[in-house]
């Protein structure tokens, strides 16, 4: 049986609430938005702290440059828009006004991925993580639920240096009630020894469901919430590869350049193992309800299960025969022989 998770707020809502808390505790926190403050939820901060809120208009490049200037002068700017407009239109400014001079700017997008639904590809973002991780010095996070988003936003304010956090539009299942989510780390949510599912964003909930479905077939999957894409928790990934010998990486992003690419790169340099990706193919999506799109573009627990079966088939010597159900306790691991 696949578990039911209670629905919680969208990660963008958690961002809006965390910003207000930060505004109260830290007078240096300022917010810049580009005419999407109702959608990014920065409007709450704007209402509470109008003097520290700058809505620059529909001008994302200018917004990022302004954030760089605010940081340069000791402020802690959070700047927000939809992921595609913020990262793509602001990219040169993210390089020149933020990453290159290492300014203390916090870039928090909303509407990451295709789960924004009906607006279609011009507003969907499947490239932002890839673009953000190549900016030297940036920390890049993709929270999976509201509690984690809140913690990451607060952490971003305390961190010295540029941070990118991608939030989403739809309400998402609650995975955490609280907790600490340090940069450069990950969170293991389930243990297993046949394979590891590495996920972030709304694919974490799907990974947990896939874990349950696989378990019903006698396959045990480790599940890792890799909320921090950069720096990656390489130690956990490498250990997962060593101990389970096969990985599925699931993310709401292009299969090129995101978490899957980074995990593969890490493994190629440490402990290679077969890896399958659950991600958006090299294509733009379309309009539809969020659920329809997640199904059509291959981002559900069922797709993770299919990828798990595939990767198990590729495993040099499976530690568990995929259908047998009973695990040989002390069978040597393929990478230890």
């Amino acid at each position: 049986m696949v578990r039911e998770l209670p629905m919680g707020p969208a990660t963008r809502e958690a961002y809006g609430a965390a910003l207000v808390e930060l505004g109260k505790s830290n007078p240096n926190v300022v917010v810049v938005d580009a005419d999407l403050s109702k959608s990014t939820y920065t409007t709450k901060f704007g209402k509470e702290f109008p003097d520290r809120f700058f809505n620059v208009g529909i001008a994302e490049a200018n917004m990022v440059g302004i954030a760089g200037g605010l940081a340069h002068s000791g402020k802690i700017p959070f700047c927000s828009s939809f992921a595609c407009f913020l990262i793509d239109k602001g990219y040169d400014q993210l390089r020149i006004a933020v990453a290159y001079p290492r300014e203390n700017v916090k870039v928090v997008s909303s509407h990451g991925g295709i789960s924004i639904g009906e607006d279609g590809p011009s507003q969907q973002s499947i490239e932002d993580v890839a673009l953000a991780v190549t900016l030297p010095g940036f920390v890049v996070c993709v929270p999976s639920d509201a509690a984690q988003a809140r913690d990451l936003v607060k952490r971003a304010a305390d961190h010295k240096g540029p941070v990118y956090i991608r939030t989403g539009r739809p309400k998402v299942p609650t995975i955490y009630t609280g907790g600490e989510f340090p940069f450069g780390k990950s969170r293991q949510l389930e243990d297993g020894k046949d394979l590891t599912i590495v996920a972030n964003g709304l694919m974490v909930a799907e990974a947990l469901k896939a874990h349950d479905a696989l378990k019903d077939d006698g396959i045990t999957a480790r599940v890792i919430d890799s909320y921090c894409v950069k720096p990656l928790d390489a130690e956990a990934i490498e250990r997962a590869s060593r101990e389970t010998g096969a990985l599925v990486v699931a993310e709401e992003h292009s299969r090129i350049g995101g978490l899957g690419s980074i995990v593969a790169q890490c493994l190629a340099a440490t402990t290679p193992a077969p890896l399958e990706q659950v991600a958006v193919d090299d294509t733009y999506a379309e309009s539809g309800t969020p659920q329809q799109l997640l199904e059509k573009y291959g981002l559900t627990w069922k797709h993770i299960v299919a990828a798990a079966r595939k990767v198990l088939g590729r495993k040099a010597r499976p530690s568990t025969p995929p259908t047998a159900g009973k695990a040989e306790e002390n069978e040597p691991h393929p990478f230890e022989v």
């Binding site: 279609g120 590809p121 379309e286 059509k296």
Partner: peptide
């Protein structure tokens, strides 16, 4: 705005070539 409709949420040349540009950004 429905799945499979050529009438996408923003103009999309892939579905209606008579649109001269895909816009929305």
């Amino acid at each position: 705005r429905k799945l499979g409709s050529p009438l996408q949420g923003h103009p999309d040349r892939r579905f209606i070539p008579a649109l001269e540009a895909s816009t929305g950004s």
